Simulated assay, not measured.
Amino acid sequence: MIDIHSHILPAIDDGSRNLDMTLSMLHMSAVSGVTDIIATPHVNRGGHVPSWQEIEEKTAQVAEAAKRAHLPIHIYSGAEIELNGDVLRFLKEGSWDYCLAGSPYILLELTDQSQSDMAERLIYELQLRGFQPVLAHVERYEQLMNHPDVLISWAKKGILLQCNIGSFTGYFGHHLQQHVEDLYRNHMVHFLGSDGHRTEFRTTDMREGHDALRNLQQKQHNQQDLWLETTQNASRILNHRVLYPDVPDYWQVKKKGLWQRLFGS
């Protein structure tokens, strides 16, 4: 597994508090089958934009510490960038600063206040500058999940979608679990991430999520091995190759059970 979304860098955002916690988080990742992980600290949240140099230096420090601790995991630099007009100021054409693992792929976060039409215009401008947009934890965005036709339209325009593996376990609540199951049913999950923040909660341990994916595959009688497929997709980020996923023409709704069909509830 390649974890493309994590907050493992120490003392830079609301993630890891210190290097010891970071190493514990990396140990959790490794034992859950993660071979590669991208550090994606928050950028532009509340207007705070840590320098790319700081992110790269911290990533190098963590990689060296992990090597000394004999942790079998590769660590790359990146960022999770809040999408608003400021991104056009510090994301420059021809520069892959704040991108994932030195590639053109860039992880973008919407907010509850993000308007779909405005977000789409900003993303399009980033695409014109050569960036490949990836939407972080798309299952959280009600403004998109309530309008799946918009989501499909975005995907057809080259916007890729990442989900948090914890959403498949119900960690973030039944509502988000329903969202990721709908996305899975429609083959609209391109990448997975732990979105790991700490060792006590929202961890980088993906084992329970892996089990949830296997159970979901059996439940939906779906042949899609999402763990394997998203790992293969993420390898394209590390190898700086373009991903062209198949996008459905329409949104497939969940079939109602017998009780729901008889009584409408």
Rank of each mutant, 00 (worst) to 15 (best):
I2R: 00
I8K: 02
L9V: 04
A11Q: 06
I12N: 00
D14M: 02
G15Q: 05
N18S: 04
D20Y: 01
L23S: 04
M25T: 02
A39P: 03
V43M: 01
P50L: 01
S51V: 03
W52D: 02
E56I: 09
A63C: 06
R68S: 13
H70N: 15
L71K: 09
G78Q: 01
A79T: 01
L83G: 12
N84G: 11
V87T: 11
C99V: 05
L100C: 04
G102Q: 08
P104R: 07
Y105T: 05
Y105Q: 01
Y105F: 12
L110E: 05
T111S: 12
S114K: 04
D117L: 15
E120W: 13
E120C: 12
L122F: 06
E125L: 15
L126A: 09
N146S: 15
S153I: 11
A155F: 00
G158Y: 02
I159Q: 02
I159K: 02
C163Q: 04
I165S: 02
G166C: 03
T169S: 12
G170C: 08
G173K: 08
H174Y: 13
H174N: 15
Q178T: 14
V180Y: 03
Y184F: 15
Y184G: 04
H187W: 00
H187Q: 15
M188Q: 05
V189A: 08
D195I: 05
R198Y: 15
E200T: 15
T204V: 07
D205L: 10
M206E: 10
M206S: 09
G209K: 05
H210K: 14
R214H: 11
H221L: 06
N222G: 12
L226K: 03
L228K: 08
L228M: 10
S235K: 12
S235Y: 14
R236G: 00
V242T: 14
V242Q: 11
D246E: 12
V247Y: 00
D249L: 13
Q252V: 11
V253K: 13
W259M: 09
W259I: 14
G264E: 09
